[in-house]
Amino acid sequence: MTPMSDAMPEIATDRQVDRSKMTVSAEVAVQIEKMNKWYGQFHVLRDIDLTVHRGERIVIAGPSGSGKSTLIRCINRLEEHQAGKIVVDGIELTNDLKNIDKVRSEVGMVFQHFNLFPHLTILENCTLAPIWVRKTPRKEAIETAMHFLEKVKIPEQANKYPGQLSGGQQQRVAIARSLCMRPRIMLFDEPTSALDPEMIKEVLDTMISLAEEGMTMLCVTHEMGFARQVANRVIFMDQGQIVEQNEPEEFFLNPKSDRTKLFLSQILGH
């Protein structure tokens, strides 16, 4: 037993995480400067400054209502920001619809409630965007889709409809669907919050293998074990602002702010 173990969250899975390709480059993937957002009179995001380098795995944690989901939804413009600047892959997000669609096709997103298209089969869910947005030939799109469905370990479900799959399977399909667009950045908005415990593991496994391949990831999650194993940076948010950020070891062992300490003690059950 290491001396730090009682303060550290349980590990997410029993597998060994291969860190050989988890390298952070100097290239900037997402640049957020002095970003502010309001819902009507309510100031949801306050002066957010965040630079994400290519290859980073960032976990964003915080109590509900702290603005963490809103933050990552601003990165692909599902939410509009009112002040400040967001640059994704060199493209600044403005009202220009062309730029927004371009950013969205480069940035994959996984939602809490999967949001698969229930009227399409699993395979069609995965091939739709490549065919209609990327103009990929159908045959190639199907090959890509099968490749990623194998990667998330459900190729045999390809011709079923989302309603026939379990929650964990649906979330893995949602990940595969995003990957089919060959995104350079992946956003995860509480991907495991709507799942049963044993399904959480299969989704986390998929996310870990994605991280092992060097994907740039921003995850809003309460899975502190995942943060500890995979993230290179943990960000703690409260009341619409970034309260503290650090490497996972330091974040969990030596939280600086009282707000972080309180949050960690609640979430880790101490």
Binding site: L78, R104, G108, M109, F111, V133
Partner: peptide, 9 residues
Amino acid sequence: EAADALGLD
């Protein structure tokens, strides 16, 4: 949101 996030216009 899912349609938007995939870049569909």
